[in-house]
């Protein structure tokens, strides 16, 4: 089944097509949502991702493009879904509290500590720079797909990424120097 045939089958409601699309994009969608800006601690990235898939299934009849652009389209939906979650959490005015003792368990996923480290590293960037770096350097989207997903031009994406990486280099070298001195 070709890429475009996968999308066409997904439009018809074929479960195999949706399984193929989910395998291709769901993992990096969750990773991107975990590392991107403005994540609400009260809302898990998996919840946003699940709502994103449901919205995509509702709107897939209006989607025009192949499987290559499907990722960018899906990330764009996720960005809007996350923004809606953020607005709702702002209205709820919840105050996050510390995790209950014993809540942390060693998950089977060995990449969780790495994700936490990257999220902490990207926290010093501006929200836009964080989004761009998370899309390109963390989950491996192309510049064009990143621009489409974030609603930016490719030039703006390149500029934001350049600034973000320069800042990350400076912070990393400072941290390494401090660790060496200590």
């Amino acid at each position: 089944m070709t890429d475009d045939a996968v999308v066409a089958a997904a439009k018809r409601g074929d479960q195999d097509a949706w399984r193929s699309l989910y395998r291709a994009h769901a993992g990096r969608l969750v990773v991107w949502l975990e590392t991107r800006s403005g994540s609400d601690s009260a809302v898990a990235a998996e919840d946003v991702a699940a709502q994103t898939w449901l919205t995509a299934a509702e709107k897939v009849a209006d989607y025009t493009g192949g499987a290559e652009e499907f990722g960018a389209w899906l990330f764009g939906i996720a960005r809007r879904v996350a923004a809606n979650y953020r607005r709702r959490s702002g209205r709820r005015r919840t105050d996050p509290v510390a995790d209950a003792p014993g809540a942390e368990v060693d998950g089977p996923d060995a990449t969780v500590p790495e994700r936490a480290w990257i999220a902490d590293l990207l926290a010093g960037l501006s929200p836009r720079e964080r989004d761009v770096v998370a899309c390109i350097d963390v989950v491996g989207l192309s510049s064009a797909d990143t621009a489409r997903a974030l609603g930016m031009t490719q030039v703006a994406v390149r500029v934001a990424r350049h600034r973000a990486l320069r800042r990350l280099r400076a912070e990393t070298s400072t941290t390494l120097l401090a660790a060496t001195i200590a």
Binding site: A10, K11, R12, G13, D14, Q15, W18, R19, Y22, R23, A26, G27, R28, V30, V31, A50, W53, L54, A56, A57, E58, K59, V60, A61, D62, D109, T111, E114, R115, I118, L121, V133, D137, V138, V139, G140
Partner: peptide, 26 residues
């Protein structure tokens, strides 16, 4: 910064919902 993205398997319930919603949308 690249993370090895795991390949997730869709839950059967979600997959059924996706197929149903896409059929309704079409």
């Amino acid at each position: 910064l690249r993370i090895d993205v795991p390949e997730l398997e869709p839950p059967a319930v979600l997959l059924e919902q996706l197929a149903q919603l896409s059929r309704q949308g079409a």
